[in-house]
Design a protein around this nucleic acid. Sequence first.
DNA 1: CCTTAATCCTGGAAGC
DNA 2: TGCTTCCAGGATTAAG
Length: 298
Amino acid sequence: MPELPEVETVRRSLAPRLVGRTVTKATLHRRDIAVMPGDPEGGFSRQREIHQAPKRVRAADMLQGRRLVEPLRRGKQLAIVSAAGDDGRPAIIVHLGMTGQLRWVAAGGKLDAADHVHATWRLDDGSRLVFRDPRRFGGIWLLPDQRDLEARWATLGPDGLESSINELVQALDRSSRRAVKAALLDQGVIAGIGNIYADESLFRAGVHPLTPLEQLDDSDRLRLARSLRGVLQAAVDARGSTLRDYADADGRLGAAQGMHRVYGRGSQPCTTCGTLLEREVIAQRTTVWCPSCQPTRL
DNA sequence: CCTTAATCCTGGAAGC
DNA sequence: TGCTTCCAGGATTAAG
């Protein structure tokens, strides 16, 4: 489940392959994984356009003929960005969803997992960039100009890795009764956190996942912000968590799953105190916490 | 303002 | 062994 650390690892592994290269041929194999210019806007949903009459995919919108610069990331979203031209600076957002992968294949090489390939970009050195996604929860967004990228990313909260601790603290300072776990999963609050790193950071901060946001005090918010940053940074250093499908652009697996202390460990003993970890669905997600280290707050 | 359920989808694992 | 069922989950929309 690619969250911020996994997407950042993909971005870093992709950057040296893409920067300075020109896209010689771009192919969209499935119309319904892409939102194209002119499609009805609607946040990040693809549902609405799936059953519409197919719209013609313009090669230029797929960055064909464009020279690529450093890929960008905000939260879990990765942007393939082209160099500025007279007609603007088109970009493509890739969201990996659950099982999405961006893989780079050297010239003459072949992809070890070639099924469920939905888009392909051939580069001027003969290599290929491939988007595959068996479960198709992910998708791509074709943006005519960098301004469209910025507009879209303006709806996201501060990035969990790139913003300051103070910005994260402020993002958590809301008079809201919703559970802190639900808030952490909301990309408009802080961008990049998913189920794994939400649980891990709450554990490290000693905060119960059901604690209403407005009940957190300054000390709680600071601990949570620091835990969040620490967990995300450590996971990036370990090249992300590979549970099943995740791999970076070169097919390398991550090692951060070895650092998980609560995620996936329901009813096992807490690594700190030995208490059996609780497991319950909170905010539509399986949530695991230590009832002793993360006491309920009234 | 908030939560919940349903939706998209595939494949691995667990259950019988 | 072979079938069926369940479950994983990011983000959105509709409903309560």
